[in-house]
Design a protein around this nucleic acid. Structure first.
Length: 279
DNA sequence: AGCTCTTCCTGAAAGC
DNA sequence: TGCTTTCAGGAAGAGC
């Protein structure tokens, strides 16, 4: 599933080929994941892509429109199974490919998403920051910003790390891997965390995300980068999807519990459970 | 404030 | 073997 490192990998790949390209045509298959398909069909053809950015788990395509509509942007969220691929236009179309953007260099940018949990929409000029409700970028945040964001919160650590309004870009895999590295139980309340605990978590999050980006993300099922290549960070997972296997630090069996509605993998020895909460 | 439950969707895996 | 059921999960919304 695409989280921060996977989206970052895709963005870096697209930055090599998209800036300066003009979109000449758009075609859609199913459109139920697109907020306003007509708006895309109206605004995208003729516009030039001058930048591709990551904002949390969103891809932001900054556009220069030929018309007077200013500087719109195309926002894409990959959800669970979204893929963005560039390819020659005669490349065979794999099932569940639902958006085609023909480019002025003869290539095509395609969006594929079997489960269609992703989303796509235009952000018009004057929207302010359409993604303004999202929290800190975990890689850009300083240690003190990170600590201040989490300190004193009553929620469980797992829920906070997954909450895009707190930190933008963390998903289930990197949350579990970071908590394991920092030796923090997913059900631990943030308010029980001492400053050194939070600083240790900050270091763990940074280390995990940076290594995952270096290895071009985790390919569990569908994830591939914009050239169709799989990532390699799944080979470094220490807890995620390793229920019953041995912790590489202490050999205790990795366990799985549901926290914040998500499968959460942890080492019961390295990540001691907090005391049971009062009823 | 923060928790749980539900919805969206498909394919893989488990169940019978 | 083959059909049916269950489940996973990012995000948003409802209800508590």
């Amino acid at each position: 599933m695409p989280e921060l490192p996977e989206v970052e990998t895709i963005v870096r790949g697209l930055q090599k080929v998209l800036p300066g390209r003009r979109i000449v045509e758009v075609r859609f298959g199913k459109t139920d994941f697109i907020e306003d398909p007509a708006a895309l069909e109206k605004q995208l053809p003729g516009s030039r892509i001058f930048g591709v950015r990551r904002y949390g788990k969103f891809l932001v395509f900054d556009l220069e429109s030929s018309g007077a509509s200013g500087k719109p942007a195309l926002l894409i969220h990959l959800g669970m199974t979204g893929q963005l691929i560039t390819c020659p236009p005669d490349t065979s179309v794999t099932p569940h490919t639902h958006a085609f953007f023909a480019l002025d260099d003869g290539r095509e940018l395609r969006y594929r998403d079997p489960r269609r949990f992703g989303s796509m929409r235009m952000a018009a000029q004057g929207d302010g920051n359409p993604l303004g409700s999202l929290g800190l970028d975990p890689l850009e945040a300083t240690e003190s910003e990170f600590v201040a964001q989490l300190r004193g919160r009553r929620a469980r650590m797992k829920a906070l790390l997954l909450d895009q309004r707190v930190l933008r870009g963390m998903g289930n895999i990197y949350t579990d891997e970071s908590l394991w590295r920092a030796r923090i139980h997913p059900k631990r309340l943030a308010s029980s965390m001492k400053e050194p605990d939070l600083r240790r978590l900050y270091a763990a999050v940074q280390a995990i995300l940076k290594e995952a980006i270096r290895l071009r993300g985790s390919s569990i099922s569908d994830y591939v980068d914009c050239s169709g290549e799989r990532g390699e960070f799944q080979l470094r997972h220490r807890v995620y999807d390793r229920e019953g296997k041995k912790c590489v630090r202490c050999e205790a069996a990795i366990r799985r519990v549901i926290v914040a509605g998500r499968s959460s993998y942890f080492c019961p020895h390295c990540q001691p459970a907090p005391r049971a909460r009062k009823a």
